[in-house]
Amino acid sequence: MTILLALNWKMNKTPTEARAWAEDLKDKYAPVDGVELAVMAPALDLPTLAANLPAGVGYGGQDVSAQESGAYTGETSAAMLKDVGCTYAVVGHSERRDYHGETDETVAAKARQAQAHGLTPIVCVGEKLDIREKGEHVAFTLRQLAGSLSGVDAEVVVAYEPVWAIGTGKTATADDAEELAAAIRDALRGQYGAKADGIRVLYGGSVKPDNIAEICAKPNVNGALVGGASLKVADVLGMQGALQ
Protein backbone atom coordinates (compact mmCIF):
# COMPACT_ATOMS: atom_id res chain seq x y z
CA MET A 1 0.00 0.00 0.00
CA THR A 2 1.30 3.47 -0.87
CA ILE A 3 2.35 5.50 2.17
CA LEU A 4 0.66 8.89 2.39
CA LEU A 5 2.38 11.88 3.95
CA ALA A 6 -0.44 14.40 4.44
CA LEU A 7 1.30 17.69 5.17
CA ASN A 8 -0.96 19.81 7.36
CA TRP A 9 0.22 23.43 7.32
CA LYS A 10 -2.56 24.53 9.69
CA MET A 11 -2.90 28.36 9.71
CA ASN A 12 0.54 29.01 8.26
CA LYS A 13 1.89 30.41 4.99
CA THR A 14 0.47 33.28 2.98
CA PRO A 15 -0.03 32.64 -0.74
CA THR A 16 3.34 34.30 -1.36
CA GLU A 17 5.01 31.98 1.15
CA ALA A 18 3.14 28.98 -0.27
CA ARG A 19 4.48 29.76 -3.73
CA ALA A 20 8.05 29.99 -2.44
CA TRP A 21 7.62 26.64 -0.60
CA ALA A 22 6.16 24.95 -3.68
CA GLU A 23 8.90 26.28 -5.94
CA ASP A 24 11.56 25.12 -3.48
CA LEU A 25 9.98 21.67 -3.41
CA LYS A 26 9.82 21.58 -7.22
CA ASP A 27 13.55 22.34 -7.42
CA LYS A 28 14.47 19.49 -5.07
CA TYR A 29 11.70 16.90 -5.37
CA ALA A 30 12.15 13.42 -6.79
CA PRO A 31 9.39 10.83 -6.52
CA VAL A 32 9.92 7.90 -4.17
CA ASP A 33 8.24 4.62 -5.04
CA GLY A 34 5.48 3.82 -2.61
CA VAL A 35 5.32 7.29 -1.03
CA GLU A 36 2.69 9.95 -1.83
CA LEU A 37 2.96 13.59 -0.73
CA ALA A 38 -0.12 15.80 -0.37
CA VAL A 39 -0.27 19.29 1.12
CA MET A 40 -3.24 20.23 3.30
CA ALA A 41 -3.19 24.00 3.03
CA PRO A 42 -5.32 27.02 3.95
CA ALA A 43 -7.98 27.61 1.30
CA LEU A 44 -6.33 30.82 0.05
CA ASP A 45 -3.13 28.90 -0.72
CA LEU A 46 -4.73 26.17 -2.82
CA PRO A 47 -4.75 27.93 -6.23
CA THR A 48 -1.10 28.85 -5.68
CA LEU A 49 -0.24 25.23 -4.95
CA ALA A 50 -2.20 24.09 -8.00
CA ALA A 51 0.00 26.28 -10.18
CA ASN A 52 3.36 25.60 -8.56
CA LEU A 53 3.62 22.14 -6.99
CA PRO A 54 5.68 19.52 -8.82
CA ALA A 55 3.78 16.90 -10.78
CA GLY A 56 2.69 14.01 -8.62
CA VAL A 57 2.31 15.99 -5.39
CA GLY A 58 -1.33 16.37 -4.35
CA TYR A 59 -3.11 18.88 -2.19
CA GLY A 60 -6.32 19.31 -0.25
CA GLY A 61 -8.33 21.40 2.16
CA GLN A 62 -7.88 21.49 5.91
CA ASP A 63 -11.64 21.48 6.35
CA VAL A 64 -14.79 21.39 4.23
CA SER A 65 -18.35 22.50 4.82
CA ALA A 66 -21.05 19.97 5.59
CA GLN A 67 -23.31 22.07 3.36
CA GLU A 68 -23.57 21.99 -0.43
CA SER A 69 -23.74 25.79 -0.88
CA GLY A 70 -25.69 28.83 0.26
CA ALA A 71 -25.79 31.23 3.19
CA TYR A 72 -22.87 29.81 5.18
CA THR A 73 -20.52 32.76 5.53
CA GLY A 74 -16.86 31.88 5.84
CA GLU A 75 -17.19 28.23 4.84
CA THR A 76 -15.57 26.41 1.92
CA SER A 77 -17.63 23.89 -0.01
CA ALA A 78 -16.48 20.56 -1.39
CA ALA A 79 -17.31 21.81 -4.89
CA MET A 80 -14.92 24.74 -4.39
CA LEU A 81 -12.11 22.45 -3.26
CA LYS A 82 -12.70 20.12 -6.18
CA ASP A 83 -12.75 23.03 -8.64
CA VAL A 84 -9.20 24.05 -7.70
CA GLY A 85 -7.96 20.48 -8.11
CA CYS A 86 -7.99 19.15 -4.56
CA THR A 87 -8.06 15.42 -4.02
CA TYR A 88 -8.35 15.42 -0.21
CA ALA A 89 -10.17 17.22 2.60
CA VAL A 90 -9.25 16.86 6.27
CA VAL A 91 -12.27 16.51 8.54
CA GLY A 92 -12.53 16.23 12.30
CA HIS A 93 -9.05 17.42 13.19
CA SER A 94 -8.76 17.72 16.97
CA GLU A 95 -8.37 21.51 16.68
CA ARG A 96 -11.69 21.71 14.82
CA ARG A 97 -13.32 19.49 17.42
CA ASP A 98 -11.88 21.48 20.34
CA TYR A 99 -12.00 25.07 19.08
CA HIS A 100 -15.17 24.86 17.00
CA GLY A 101 -17.17 22.25 18.87
CA GLU A 102 -17.40 19.82 15.98
CA THR A 103 -19.15 16.59 16.88
CA ASP A 104 -18.78 13.15 15.33
CA GLU A 105 -22.06 13.81 13.50
CA THR A 106 -20.67 17.01 12.01
CA VAL A 107 -17.48 15.24 10.96
CA ALA A 108 -19.44 12.48 9.25
CA ALA A 109 -21.59 15.04 7.40
CA LYS A 110 -18.44 16.78 6.17
CA ALA A 111 -16.91 13.48 5.06
CA ARG A 112 -20.07 12.56 3.14
CA GLN A 113 -20.10 15.97 1.47
CA ALA A 114 -16.45 15.56 0.46
CA GLN A 115 -17.13 12.15 -1.04
CA ALA A 116 -20.15 13.47 -2.93
CA HIS A 117 -17.76 15.72 -4.85
CA GLY A 118 -15.04 13.16 -5.48
CA LEU A 119 -12.74 14.17 -2.62
CA THR A 120 -11.19 11.65 -0.26
CA PRO A 121 -11.84 12.69 3.34
CA ILE A 122 -9.04 12.29 5.86
CA VAL A 123 -11.06 11.57 9.00
CA CYS A 124 -9.20 12.38 12.22
CA VAL A 125 -9.77 10.62 15.53
CA GLY A 126 -7.83 10.37 18.77
CA GLU A 127 -7.81 10.82 22.52
CA LYS A 128 -6.66 13.41 25.04
CA LEU A 129 -4.12 12.61 27.74
CA ASP A 130 -6.63 12.04 30.55
CA ILE A 131 -8.41 9.40 28.52
CA ARG A 132 -5.16 7.60 27.75
CA GLU A 133 -4.09 7.71 31.38
CA LYS A 134 -7.35 6.00 32.36
CA GLY A 135 -6.68 3.26 29.81
CA GLU A 136 -9.76 4.18 27.80
CA HIS A 137 -7.96 5.38 24.65
CA VAL A 138 -8.87 2.44 22.42
CA ALA A 139 -12.57 2.39 23.33
CA PHE A 140 -12.83 6.18 23.07
CA THR A 141 -11.14 6.34 19.68
CA LEU A 142 -13.26 3.55 18.23
CA ARG A 143 -16.47 5.23 19.40
CA GLN A 144 -15.30 8.45 17.79
CA LEU A 145 -14.44 6.57 14.61
CA ALA A 146 -17.85 4.90 14.38
CA GLY A 147 -19.66 8.20 14.75
CA SER A 148 -17.38 10.01 12.34
CA LEU A 149 -17.84 7.37 9.62
CA SER A 150 -21.63 7.14 9.80
CA GLY A 151 -22.89 6.93 6.22
CA VAL A 152 -19.37 7.34 4.84
CA ASP A 153 -18.19 4.90 2.18
CA ALA A 154 -14.84 3.12 2.05
CA GLU A 155 -13.09 5.78 -0.09
CA VAL A 156 -11.59 7.34 3.01
CA VAL A 157 -8.34 7.82 4.91
CA VAL A 158 -8.31 7.62 8.71
CA ALA A 159 -5.78 9.60 10.75
CA TYR A 160 -5.17 8.60 14.36
CA GLU A 161 -3.86 11.63 16.24
CA PRO A 162 -3.36 11.32 19.99
CA VAL A 163 -4.24 14.87 20.99
CA TRP A 164 -1.58 14.95 23.70
CA ALA A 165 1.12 14.49 21.06
CA ILE A 166 0.06 17.24 18.64
CA GLY A 167 2.45 20.17 18.62
CA THR A 168 3.82 19.23 22.03
CA GLY A 169 7.01 17.52 20.98
CA LYS A 170 5.69 14.34 22.60
CA THR A 171 5.29 11.41 20.28
CA ALA A 172 3.45 8.17 20.80
CA THR A 173 5.79 5.24 20.36
CA ALA A 174 5.59 3.20 17.20
CA ASP A 175 3.94 0.47 19.28
CA ASP A 176 1.36 2.98 20.58
CA ALA A 177 0.58 4.01 17.01
CA GLU A 178 0.26 0.40 15.92
CA GLU A 179 -2.01 -0.49 18.85
CA LEU A 180 -4.58 2.06 17.73
CA ALA A 181 -4.01 1.54 14.02
CA ALA A 182 -4.66 -2.19 14.42
CA ALA A 183 -7.81 -1.53 16.45
CA ILE A 184 -8.97 0.96 13.82
CA ARG A 185 -8.28 -1.57 11.06
CA ASP A 186 -10.41 -4.18 12.82
CA ALA A 187 -13.23 -1.65 13.23
CA LEU A 188 -12.97 -0.73 9.56
CA ARG A 189 -13.25 -4.41 8.62
CA GLY A 190 -16.43 -4.57 10.66
CA GLN A 191 -17.87 -1.66 8.70
CA TYR A 192 -16.43 -2.18 5.21
CA GLY A 193 -15.42 -5.83 5.04
CA ALA A 194 -12.49 -6.67 2.76
CA LYS A 195 -12.31 -3.06 1.52
CA ALA A 196 -10.86 -2.10 4.90
CA ASP A 197 -7.53 -3.63 3.96
CA GLY A 198 -7.16 -0.95 1.28
CA ILE A 199 -7.91 1.99 3.60
CA ARG A 200 -4.85 3.93 4.70
CA VAL A 201 -4.53 4.57 8.43
CA LEU A 202 -2.20 7.45 9.27
CA TYR A 203 -0.52 8.45 12.51
CA GLY A 204 -0.38 12.14 13.46
CA GLY A 205 1.46 13.77 16.33
CA SER A 206 4.95 15.31 16.28
CA VAL A 207 6.11 13.23 13.32
CA LYS A 208 9.64 14.08 12.16
CA PRO A 209 12.33 12.72 9.81
CA ASP A 210 13.94 10.81 12.67
CA ASN A 211 10.83 8.85 13.73
CA ILE A 212 8.76 8.48 10.55
CA ALA A 213 10.41 5.26 9.33
CA GLU A 214 9.89 3.36 12.59
CA ILE A 215 6.25 4.43 12.81
CA CYS A 216 5.43 3.63 9.18
CA ALA A 217 7.16 0.25 9.40
CA LYS A 218 4.29 -0.99 11.55
CA PRO A 219 1.88 -3.22 9.60
CA ASN A 220 -1.25 -1.12 10.11
CA VAL A 221 0.30 2.36 9.80
CA ASN A 222 0.21 3.60 6.22
CA GLY A 223 1.60 7.10 6.57
CA ALA A 224 1.36 10.23 8.66
CA LEU A 225 -0.57 13.43 9.14
CA VAL A 226 2.36 15.80 9.57
CA GLY A 227 2.08 19.17 11.31
CA GLY A 228 5.14 21.25 12.24
CA ALA A 229 7.56 19.24 10.11
CA SER A 230 5.49 20.02 7.01
CA LEU A 231 6.46 23.69 7.02
CA LYS A 232 10.06 23.21 5.86
CA VAL A 233 10.85 21.54 2.55
CA ALA A 234 14.02 20.04 4.04
CA ASP A 235 11.98 18.24 6.70
CA VAL A 236 9.47 16.97 4.15
CA LEU A 237 12.21 15.60 1.92
CA GLY A 238 13.91 14.15 5.00
CA MET A 239 10.76 12.22 5.86
CA GLN A 240 10.33 11.08 2.28
CA GLY A 241 13.95 9.95 2.14
CA ALA A 242 13.63 8.06 5.42
CA LEU A 243 10.90 5.95 3.83
CA GLN A 244 12.99 4.80 0.85
Rank of each mutant, 00 (worst) to 15 (best):
R143V: 15
A66H: 15
Y72T: 10
A22E: 06
Y203P: 04
V221T: 05
A213P: 00
A182M: 11
A20K: 13
R112Y: 09
E136S: 15
G169T: 07
T16D: 14
A146H: 14
E36K: 11
R189V: 15
S206W: 10
L25R: 01
V35L: 04
E105L: 12
C86L: 01
S94Y: 06
F140C: 12
T87E: 11
A229C: 06
V163K: 03
G241Q: 13
P219K: 08
L142R: 08
V207F: 02
V35E: 02
G85V: 04
Y99Q: 13
P209A: 04
E155A: 15
L180A: 06
S77H: 10
G70R: 11
T48W: 01
W164Q: 02
R96Q: 12
E155Y: 13
A159E: 10
A114P: 05
L142K: 09
Q113A: 11
E127C: 05
G169R: 07
A242S: 10
G34M: 05
G227P: 08
F140T: 13
A165R: 04
T73E: 07
R143W: 14
Q115T: 09
V64E: 00
Q67V: 15
A172M: 10
G60M: 01
R200M: 03
D33R: 14
L81E: 02
V152Y: 04
G147W: 00
C216Y: 02
G238R: 04
Y192R: 08
P121H: 04
H93C: 03
A89T: 07
G198V: 10
L149P: 04
L119M: 02
Y29I: 06
N12E: 12
G60E: 01
G228F: 04
K170E: 13
V156H: 00
A213R: 09
A41F: 01
